[in-house]
Design a binder for these strands. Structure first.
Lengths: 176, 176
DNA sequence: GTACCCATGTAATTGGTTACATGATTAT
DNA sequence: ATAATCATGTAACCAATTACATGGGTAC
């Protein structure tokens, strides 16, 4: 079910083709909220189309079809969001899992990985901050969907940096 | 693949039965790193057993089998951790997805959900902080695997709180 | 003209959830 | 005795990944 609403949500921001959507997953949403590959996206778009939740708003070169959300689609999305998370929302995140299991390593090895994690997170904070700034100037200072999401990412990655710094210190203490 | 190493990691902390493991998933690791149900755990344990990565260390009442990680199991776990994340580490987190899609709602509704999110995160921070303290006193002040994980959770949920507060403020601005 | 990206689709396989099924132990 | 929890397992179904497959457009 979640995939269907992820697609509706992305299309609610702006109309996109299947190809666009698969790049939007790969670039942002897929790295910390929900991922999907094109082989899953195209069939789901067709289902959404037959259900009337989206429509083809434009057709371009190379068989490109641009989809836009419809009013029933917007209703379905709102309803899902307001209904609250299904109790059965199991999380899957290999990156976080790896951090969970770090203590299986010698402190020196664990520290090496924590430093890599920290560096990656710092990069993400920079990228997202820049993205947020440009979204902000584009929209004239009003908060957009992607703006909230970008800020979420900034906060989440900053937390990772702080935790990694703390964890490195802790592991160094136990190294001797 | 990840499930197999999640199991090895949990067993590396301490020996457990399939039942214990499914509760450990439900209680902690499953809520922010990797989830698994018993119907997936039992078959995977059997595979790990035939591969020699775990062994039965004890048998109790009601057919209870306690599994422990073996030396080859520890080696496999370390190797996987050191090899670094597979490029194909797609994330799935319905809670975060919902936060991503909030802008599809009227500001007032979005704020309602953000407040719920904030309250839940604050609860988690309290729970995890308490858990961390008790782990700390138990282990005499040395950092354990679950200790690092608990602190990760504390940082991650604190970040959610800060972001939610910021997002509420932003949305209030655009409400009028 | 050829390499690269755009663009969409399907098939086979693997991973994961829900539902079905059974029975022992413990607490009340 | 009976309800709750412990404990393990399998089967059917659904979700997701990987691999296969095709072709148009653009830049060099």
């Amino acid at each position: 079910m979640a995939l269907r609403f992820a697609l509706l949500g992305l299309l609610n921001d702006r109309p996109s083709s299947g190809y666009d959507l698969s790049r939007r997953f790969a670039a942002g949403i897929g790295t910390y909220a929900w991922d999907a590959k094109h082989s899953q996206i195209y069939p789901e778009l067709r289902k959404l189309l037959t259900d009337g939740l989206i429509e083809i708003s434009d057709e371009g070169a190379r068989g490109r079809k641009t989809y836009a959300i419809t009013d029933p689609g917007r209703d379905a999305l709102r309803e899902w969001l307001l209904a609250g998370p299904s109790s059965t929302g199991g999380v899957r995140n290999e990156y976080v899992l790896r951090l969970f299991l770090l203590s299986a390593l010698e402190p020196a090895d664990a520290i090496k990985i924590l430093k890599q994690t920290r560096a990656f997170a710092a990069e993400q904070v920079d990228d997202l901050t820049r993205e947020y700034q440009s979204l902000r100037t584009e929209s004239g200072g009003s908060p957009t969907g992607s703006g909230l999401a970008a800020q979420y990412g900034v906060h989440a990655y900053r937390a990772t940096i702080e935790w990694a710094d703390w964890a490195i210190k802790e592991l160094r203490k136990s190294e001797h």
